[in-house]
Amino acid sequence: MLAVETNNLTKMFHKLKAVDELNLEIKEAEIYSLLGPNGAGKTTSVRMLTGLLRPTMGGARVLGLDISENLQEIRSRVGHLTETPALYERLTVRQNLDFFAKLYKVPETEIKPRIEEIVDLFELPEKLDDPAGTLSKGMKQKVAIARAMFHKPELIFLDEPTASLSPESAKVVREQIIKLAKKEKRTFFICTHNLFEAERLSSRVGIINHGRLVAQGSPAELREMRKDETITIFRFSTWESNTKEFFDDMKIEIVEQNQDKKYVSTIIKDIEKQTPNIINSLAKSNFQLVEVKHEFPTLERIYLELVEMEGVPREENNMEEI
């Protein structure tokens, strides 16, 4: 069974298409990241999947349940970290967790041990009886993540989970996400514009811009799709004056050449076949080659190219959070 399946999911706010025919298939126990700039439609997509917004067109199934019919059951089986930590600041961390535990019908006898367990996971125990309003931004975010996972949901939507966390805290959160996905088979749907995080965490990523899914796959698959843009660097022990002519004769595009550092960066079509030929030719022509290195397109490069190709995203400035 798929954890999330959308079918041309579309949301319009007046004339603005915030999400445009989104088609996703997310498997159980998968960590899926939806990448996109601000206003791309990530939060709106999650809000539709959690029943906070009604789709204008299309539909979706979450945990096998239709979002137009089984919203209450979906809400009770998923966890949702919203864009803001959304903690009750006058209440203590314990009271915040206890309140949501009761909303999600966690049995009374399990609440206390679960609070202790989850605050240990997220390194929060000393803050348990402090009012949430006195916590740092990062601590609030950790409490909010703990709250989203408290009732052990099968599917967890995390909207920018590590946005305000310190590198150490972000590492703790990432480790917990990976552990929960692997050991407890929980599915994670992460909205982020943190490419580093998406690449390290996710089995697959989707790139969304202007509400449209512009690319999808594992980070490796996305790189494979763009393998023609791999840069190959040839470094020499001595610089020969005819280096440029050599590559021009072989009809290889030079991206950069650096005489002082003695290297040439190139873009080679069909690198698997071509690279050995070029190395042989260089050796025959007495070039003193010391290193050949492929720089595969990073997720960041792919993302930026896709987003730039689509144009600057519009902010969702005709929507007002209330």
């Binding site: 029943g51 906070l52 809400r75 919203t82 959304a86 949501f100």
Partner: peptide, 16 residues
Amino acid sequence: EKERKTMEALLASPLS
């Protein structure tokens, strides 16, 4: 709840 932005988490819960 709206002003302090806690409403969304509440609405995302199973409360009818």
